[in-house]
Design a protein around this nucleic acid. Structure first.
Lengths: 207, 207
DNA sequence: TCGTGTATTTACCAAATGGTCAAAAGTTCT
DNA sequence: AGAACTTTTGACCATTTGGTAAATACACGA
């Protein structure tokens, strides 16, 4: 084993790394990379700043670790979309899964959005290496469904963009939505509305 | 005149304030509020840092000024949506105007997105005072159209959210779109796609 | 229980950053 | 030209912030 022996992490190590990452997710998603400080993260994690640097190489290391973890979570719902299943069911299911992610993981959504918004300085490699291939693969699947007449013909790339934007909007623009809906819970209504929107869009024209 | 005499700004003042705001828009939209530095703004504006502070009270003052200006621009396309016009034409026209804004003012879109993403710390008053009333008013107009059977019945609030998210996505997530489309220009295809999507969604059911 | 490696803290540092101030350089108007 | 102003600059400062080093406290297997 030529690599530096990784050793198995102790109980304390696992607990503290987790604590730190969770705190960092809070802080980074709320203030952005540059707006977040190690002191804030330390405070939120209940640890001292030097202690945090004992577990991570530095601020950037924490951020990158978070982004790496996130990428997997992020791709999951799309991976689940099954090329063998019923096209309409699969696509509408994907919409709902994505909307659920906004509801249940808003911090992650905002972390991702912030990174992309600033030009993906630390995530571009991931986009190219992980997201792009999956994107191309799933676009081909969708195109196949359309060619088979199972769905209306729409550019699959823009179809996916519209799914992502409409669903993530509820997490990323939450501050605006809270104001406009006077705090009323948006997700149930949003779920109906998006289901209807994409159903109408994708329903194949009767010959 | 009890107010501090405002005087009319000199030619130099007007030029420099404009230079600074344009530079600041570049820097703030690219790095976020906290990520932007006065030195970067000064450099981009071609002025010295103290000179910038001669024209503006401070970093926050610049940011707030930008946000105030932006709010007007931002509301414009929605204001233009005319309650007297043909419902489908008005709504689809609004979609296109909003998409045009993403194409032509991506920096403004990202500045706005960044501010909301971080909880609208400096913009919340504007949202409540300016956006909310307009939002309510236009929702009522749309609801009127639906009640009259001119459009399919959809929650107008979520309809507007979906218009905003799909159109702004092309500016805010540009870094991602560039990767996924391999640099291919997205706007023409997006325009067709969105027109179709909202047309299908809003077409009233034949009785 | 004791020694060894693991965790944590205290005290610190250098660079970056928002901001100030007084002097110098331009403008403008008479 | 010269007084009266606006604009610009160079030198400076206090704070914040990411990060380090060495000493101390702690956990755990033999």
């Amino acid at each position: 084993m030529p690599d530096a022996a990784p050793k198995k992490p102790s109980r304390i190590q696992k607990r503290n790394r987790h604590l730190i990452l969770d705190a960092a997710l809070d802080v980074f998603s709320a203030h952005g990379y540059r707006g977040a400080t190690l002191d804030q993260i330390a405070e939120a994690a209940g640890l001292s700043k030097p202690n945090i640097l004992y577990y991570f190489g530095g601020k950037e290391d924490i951020h990158v670790t978070l982004l790496n973890q996130l990428m997997e979570t992020w791709l999951d719902p799309l991976i689940e979309m099954n090329g063998e299943g019923d096209p309409m069911t699969e696509l509408l299911g994907y919409v709902q899964r994505k909307l659920d992610m906004s509801r249940e993981l808003p911090r992650e959504s905002r972390l991702f959005a912030g990174e992309i918004l600033q030009g993906a300085p630390r995530m571009n490699p991931h986009l190219v290496a992980d997201l792009k291939p999956l994107f191309d693969e799933k676009c081909a699947v969708i195109q196949g469904w359309m060619d088979a007449g199972k769905l209306a013909s729409i550019d699959p790339r823009h179809l996916l963009f519209s799914i992502w934007s409409t669903t993530q909007h509820y997490a990323d623009f939450e501050a605006q939505i809270v104001v406009l809906l006077s705090g009323e819970a948006p997700y149930d209504t949003a779920s109906d509305m998006l289901d209807r929107m994409f159903r109408n869009l994708l329903r194949p024209e009767p010959a």
